[in-house]
Structures are given as structure tokens and as C-alpha cells.
Amino acid sequence: MNPVNYLYLAALLFTIGGAGVMIRRNAIIVFMCVELMLNACNLAFVTFARLHGNLDGQIFAFFTMVVAAAEVVVGLAIIVTFFRSRHSASVDDASLMKL
């Protein structure tokens, strides 16, 4: 199978993620879309590694996963705290710096 198709898939996933971040209001969904974009990038990295025949892209994909895992921990904690104070997970409710 032509590896370029993976790139198309990666682009599609990235676009879906990007659109989700921009148009959805639920913080959890937005967060999932961010993850989707990161994974689209990972897919692209791996594909390019395969195309170029070296391991740089694969190594980079691991880095991304580690950072994403850390980000999930912090991000989910923020969302949970936010939900406790506002009883809502809508990102539009977080339009002010103060409570």
C-alpha cells in the first residue's frame, strides 16, 4: 500500500481535530480534538520516517506521546477543577480571568 495514503489520513485527522477545537464548546471534546491533532502529527511523523527510511520521525513520535500524556494529566485536572467551580464544562464560560 502506498504510504502517501497515510499522509492523507493524517491530514484528514488533523483537520477534523482542528475544526473540533474551533467549533466545539465542551472542554472535554475540545481536549479530545487536541489529542486527535497530536496523533495526526504522530501518524505523519511515522509515515515520513518510513518514506525517508530513517528513525527520526519514530523517535519524535515517542516524544510527542510522552508530552501528550503529561498534558492530559494537567489538562484533565484543570477541566475537573473548572467544572467544580462553574458546574459547566463549556469553554465559553471561561472567558474571564476572574471567577
Binding site: 482542528g18 474551533m22 467549533i23 464548546r25 475540545v30 465559553d92
Partner: peptide, 13 residues
């Protein structure tokens, strides 16, 4: 600077 995350995301994009 309206405070909405999505508009910041649009400007970043």
C-alpha cells in the same frame, strides 16, 4: 481579546 478560547484558536490557526 474577547476571552473565548475558540477565537484565540482561530487566530493561532
Amino acid at each position: 481579546q474577547n476571552g473565548y478560547v475558540r477565537s484565540y484558536a482561530v487566530s493561532m490557526l
